[in-house]
């Protein structure tokens, strides 16, 4: 197992943990908050954060504008 491979997997695992954490927080938040507006805004922010994590770390969006081909 090369270092590069191990690093890549470690990033993936880290992102997975964060995603799981945000999902649970999101759920608890949605169930316990009373105000519809606050809940809506909080959920929207959580969704944006989660999607950014996936788009950046899993889908490697930066490869689109990185100069060289991979």
């Amino acid at each position: 197992m090369t270092d590069a491979f191990r690093n890549a997997l470690r990033i993936g695992g880290l992102v997975a943990v964060v995603l799981a954490f945000v999902t649970v927080v999101e759920y608890v938040f949605a169930v316990n908050v009373d105000s519809d507006q606050v809940r809506f805004v909080g959920l929207a922010l959580a969704a944006i954060a989660k999607s950014w994590l996936i788009v950046y770390f899993f889908m490697h969006v930066y490869r689109v504008w990185r100069a060289e081909a991979h």
Partner: peptide, 16 residues
Amino acid sequence: LLSSVTAFTAETAIEH
């Protein structure tokens, strides 16, 4: 979400 993590691992694995 978990399936996304495993898919990521699959891609990383084939890259290496």
